[in-house]
């Protein structure tokens, strides 16, 4: 755990900090999905989480993304503690502070690209006129300025993931959470997506990415290795993986 502590010292005010977080599932017998994990994500950092399946990667992501609450320990997102939030405050926090990017893109199938991007703003009651304009800006930012009114079914996998990234950025989140963002893409498209993450990171975005591919993880500044619900090692990536 000494390595974890050292990471605490890096950032002045971390975007997300998890302290001794525990999460146990009761599936017949208790399964300790996370067994005392402490991790902090400094502002502007790019962290990858690696580990074999069952190591607690997804659980960690769900907790840091405010989709789940810990059984023990504390999670703080942008200065706000997860523990004493009501369900609806938690949803609000998720909408405003977190941007999710999933392996399977998870776009709303019946909404256009632009509408998918506006969705987080819709739930956040952003003023109507601003939304469409912002969706256009974001889609242009990810290189899809000419695909605003396309349905997801009319887009390629890489394009869908770009729409998902634009959607994740809609409410200017403090943290971008990516779960195997290249898992459903071919290598070339995956690299393009990683380039996009780099650009966003260079522009100051804090990114946490879960992956099981070493090559993808090396795009990050550091790699957190999870084994059996514990942090096994935090490895700094010296060479630029890009």
């Amino acid at each position: 755990m000494s390595i974890a502590r050292s990471s605490d010292e890096t950032g002045a005010s971390p975007v997300v900090s998890a302290t001794d977080v525990r999460r146990t599932y009761h599936l017949g017998e208790p399964v300790h999905a996370l067994d005392g994990v402490s991790l902090s994500l400094p502002r502007g950092s790019f962290t990858a989480v690696m580990g074999p399946s069952g190591s607690g990667k997804s659980t960690l992501m769900n907790l840091l993304g405010a989709l789940d609450t810990p059984d023990g320990g504390a999670v703080e997102i942008d200065g706000q503690s997860l523990t004493d939030l009501s369900e609806s405050e938690q949803a609000r926090l998720r909408g405003t502070k977190i941007g999710f990017v999933f392996q399977t893109f998870n776009l709303m199938p019946r909404l256009t690209a632009a509408e998918n991007v506006t969705l987080p703003m819709v739930f956040h009651d952003t003023v109507d006129e601003g939304r469409r304009e912002r969706a256009r800006t974001l889609l242009e930012r990810v290189g899809l300025g000419d695909r605003l009114d396309h349905d997801p079914s009319e887009l390629s996998g890489g394009q869908r993931q770009r729409v998902a990234i634009a959607r994740a950025l809609a409410n200017e989140p403090a943290l971008l959470l990516a779960d195997e963002p290249t898992g459903n893409l071919d290598t070339e498209t995956g690299d393009e997506i990683m380039d996009l993450f780099h650009e966003l990171n260079d522009a100051g975005r804090t990114i946490l990415m879960v992956t099981h591919e070493r090559q993808i993880a090396e795009h990050a500044d550091r790699i957190v290795h999870l084994v059996d619900g514990k942090i096994d090692e935090i490895e700094s990536v010296d060479g630029d993986g890009r």
Binding site: L67, E87, L107, F123, R167
Partner: peptide
């Protein structure tokens, strides 16, 4: 169900 999950992930509350 999955769409509901997506909406919740992007900030939809129960009442939404």
């Amino acid at each position: 169900t999955r769409e509901i999950g997506i909406m919740k992930a992007v900030g939809a509350r129960k009442r939404d």
